[in-house]
Amino acid sequence: MNNGQYDIEGGIFIRFAMIGRPVLNGLAAKGQRRKRDQHCATLFAHDIVGALRRTLGFRRKGEPVDDAAVEEFLAAAIWATPVEDFVVLVGIDATPRDAMKRSVSKRLAERLTAEFEFFTDPGFYHGHSGTGPLGPSQ
């Protein structure tokens, strides 16, 4: 599958709405400890890759790549995002927050598409409930 045929940026943007507030607070150094938490980058990367993995597979230089490698790469990209960007993401005003979500989503999608190739692979991931394109497992 060509990288341009799937909306990676849109998929990441949606995950911002779905990820828990404590994870974003941890990335913005606004959590209970008031320190930036690197584990939150790992949790967010895991969430994004899990969502993308429902329909896509990942390749690097033509070879399939396991989810852990993609998560590690994405966690490093999330951690490299300036803390100031995440402060805006946990802010009260929706207009700059949504603009920043779009901006960060775009940057992360660009990093992913520069490093990995995507291909349709819906039968590979069956979710935690055991369902997939063939229906519930018996």
Rank of each mutant, 00 (worst) to 15 (best):
Ala80Cys: 10
Leu52Ile: 02
Gly11Met: 12
Thr81Met: 12
Phe116Lys: 01
Arg60Tyr: 06
Ala41Gly: 07
Ala41Thr: 00
Ala69Gly: 10
Met100Phe: 05
Gly11Asp: 08
Cys40Ile: 01
Val65Arg: 00
Gly91Glu: 08
Leu89Gly: 08
Asn2Ile: 01
Arg53Phe: 08
Thr95Cys: 00
Val87Cys: 04
Thr95Lys: 01
Asp66Gly: 06
Leu134Gln: 15
Met100Cys: 10
Arg59Asp: 12
Met18Ile: 09
Glu72Leu: 11
Phe118Tyr: 15
Arg60Lys: 11
Tyr6Ser: 11
Gly135Trp: 13
Phe44Gln: 03
Lys35Thr: 03
Phe58Ser: 03
Ala51Gly: 07
Ile12Asn: 04
Asp67Asn: 11
Thr113Arg: 11
Phe13Ala: 13
Glu117Asp: 15
Gly11Thr: 06
Lys61Asn: 09
Pro64Arg: 11
His128Thr: 12
Ile8Thr: 15
Leu24Pro: 03
Ile8Ala: 12
Gly10Gln: 10
Asp121Ser: 13
Gly11His: 11
Ala45Thr: 03
Cys40Asp: 12
Ser137Pro: 09
Gly4Ser: 13
Gly20Ala: 14
Gly132Ile: 06
Thr131Leu: 10
His128Glu: 15
Gly130Asp: 08
Ile14Asp: 12
His46Gln: 13
Met100Thr: 07
Glu71Ile: 07
Gln5Glu: 13
Ile78Pro: 01
Pro82Ala: 14
Phe58Arg: 02
Gly127Pro: 05
Gly57Cys: 09
Pro96Gly: 07
Arg54Glu: 00
Val88Thr: 15
Phe16Ile: 09
Asp47Ala: 14
Gly123Ala: 15
Gly62Thr: 05
Leu74Ser: 08
Thr55Asn: 07
Ile12Asp: 02
Ala99Ile: 01
Arg21Pro: 02
Thr81His: 04
Lys101Ile: 08
Phe118Ser: 10
Pro133Glu: 15
Pro96Arg: 06
Leu108Val: 08
His39Lys: 12
Ala77Met: 12
Gln32His: 04
Gln32Val: 12
Ala69Asn: 09
Ile92Tyr: 08
Ala17Asn: 07
Ala51His: 11
Ala29Asn: 07
Ala69Tyr: 03
Arg60Trp: 03
Arg107Pro: 01
Ala114Lys: 06
Phe118Thr: 09
Ala99Glu: 13
Leu27Gly: 04
Asn25Gly: 06
Phe86Cys: 03
Pro22Asn: 13
Arg59Leu: 09
Leu27Trp: 02
Val90Met: 01
Thr95Met: 05
Gly50Ile: 00
His126Lys: 14
Gln38Tyr: 05
Asn25Val: 06
Ala114Met: 00
Gly26Glu: 06
Gly11Gln: 09
Glu71Pro: 04
Arg34Ser: 10
Pro136Asn: 14
Asn25Pro: 00
Asp121Pro: 04
Pro64Cys: 06
Arg33Ser: 15
Glu71Tyr: 00
Pro64Val: 04
Ile78Ser: 05
Glu84Ser: 14
Leu27Glu: 11
Val65Met: 04
Ile8Gln: 00
Pro136Cys: 10
Phe124Tyr: 13
Asn25Glu: 15
Ala29Leu: 08
Asp47Cys: 01
Phe116Met: 10
Leu24Ala: 09
Met1Ala: 12
Leu108Asp: 03
Ser103Trp: 02
Arg111Pro: 03
Thr131Glu: 15
Ala76Thr: 05
Gly11Arg: 10
Ile48Pro: 02
Glu9Ile: 03
Arg53Val: 02
Val70Trp: 00
Gly26Lys: 10
Ala99His: 04
Asp67Gly: 07
